[in-house]
Design a protein around this nucleic acid. Sequence first.
DNA 1: CGGTTGGTTGATGCAAGTCAACTACGGTGG
DNA 2: CCACCGTAGTTGACTTGCATCAACCAACCG
Lengths: 245, 245
Amino acid sequence: MPIVLSAARAATIPAAAYNRFCAPPPSQDNAAAAPVTLTDHLHRIQGHGARMYFTRNETVFNQDDPADQVYRILSGTVRLCRYMPDGRRYIVDFLLPGDLMGFVESPDLPASAEAVTESTLIAFPRICFDRLANENAAVRTQLLCHLSSNLLTAHQHMFVLGCQKAKERVASFLLRLADRMDLICGDRLDLPMSRQDIADHLGLTIETISRMITALRNEGAILIPNTQQIVLRDMAALRKLAAED
Amino acid sequence: MPIVLSAARAATIPAAAYNRFCAPPPSQDNAAAAPVTLTDHLHRIQGHGARMYFTRNETVFNQDDPADQVYRILSGTVRLCRYMPDGRRYIVDFLLPGDLMGFVESPDLPASAEAVTESTLIAFPRICFDRLANENAAVRTQLLCHLSSNLLTAHQHMFVLGCQKAKERVASFLLRLADRMDLICGDRLDLPMSRQDIADHLGLTIETISRMITALRNEGAILIPNTQQIVLRDMAALRKLAAED
DNA sequence: CGGTTGGTTGATGCAAGTCAACTACGGTGG
DNA sequence: CCACCGTAGTTGACTTGCATCAACCAACCG
């Protein structure tokens, strides 16, 4: 069976994990300055990376392609999808600038990636990254943290899909997107993806997404200056709906 | 945010990953005999492990407990749950004999574990495992494979929750359980968990689970000798329903 | 034997899906 | 500049799959 590819932003390394695997641990003083994310380390092999540009809906890689590259999103948004034989599509996650993908211990990729908007990625040969990981314990630890973090995201989303009602799902989605975009409350949240994309990610239909968004607006939880932007007006209400611990 | 704990069976290491991280790779002849799973390696620190017995519904560990132990299921079945403030429960996964849990790069556990049936576990101090991983490249690779494998499982289940109808979900569930139990078609599949547990795992209600199981029986896809056992009579029909690629 | 627990079945309600019409918007070309 | 088109989103009417509520059944056990 194929092994899934990981798809979440670069996780910062928890102190506990750092102390476990990286001896000697960095002193607290310069810990902030030390390269503590996978992304930082990827800069070292930047020279081996290839910058790639994709237009809207263009495919970055296909399901079952060989998993010989790892990617970092520089700009734009990418969706990670699984297509089923009968045509159903499930969007595993959206990838934003700074996010990484392709760290999967499998010869083939278990999902395809498509540009949601115009996007710039940088691709590294997997072999270069592996060499880096082989000789650097910190990189390995960060890779573990990255995978752990992805797994957390996946489990949280499983709760959303398994337990939440339509309006709650939309609230959860908006909050997570805002969080990932480091949005300060009141700012406009850009929705790079279409309603259909959101629907395929939340296990709902495009009509239900539309209805729930207008319902949230009618309740005063959000404002909708235009279809691609949303203002999270009442974070408390949204959080209460999402009700994630 | 907390980082999720991993929960799937020990993944065997794909050759591609082995060649990447473990130099020199083992010759093909003795590869089968070499320790190629995390479980095998855990035997080395067996002496540091503590055998633990749990009765039905007893708690192995709680959400937010410190993540200082890793566990291997020796017998019985364990459920991994997330409880929400409002009392809703989501069962992330069921763990069967041979499965591992607790490999999470976070100080706290993001889920609780409870014995579904009488169970025997062996618990290793996380620190012992980390020492092993620190000095052994193969262990590290297998840990990555383990996490990758868990992530795959999670993504597949997200598709089940996001796209499938009730009957399809039950079919998927039965097929995966049979696969994990290495069941030969026709044999009786033991269901250690209650209908309520299945419901909380599939995002349905206990009544729907019951109805779908009887529907599958009426269609001739399964036989139900008793409530705790099911015979997968028509695997083709079940697979067609599950329709996972 | 009654009580308890876990599972099944039936009747009914409702949240979300489906189908279809309509609107808004952003080109593109006469 | 407006007319036309195609795409994306919204809204309404209706349907349906699953949840809910409730009764019933079977196994187990003191």
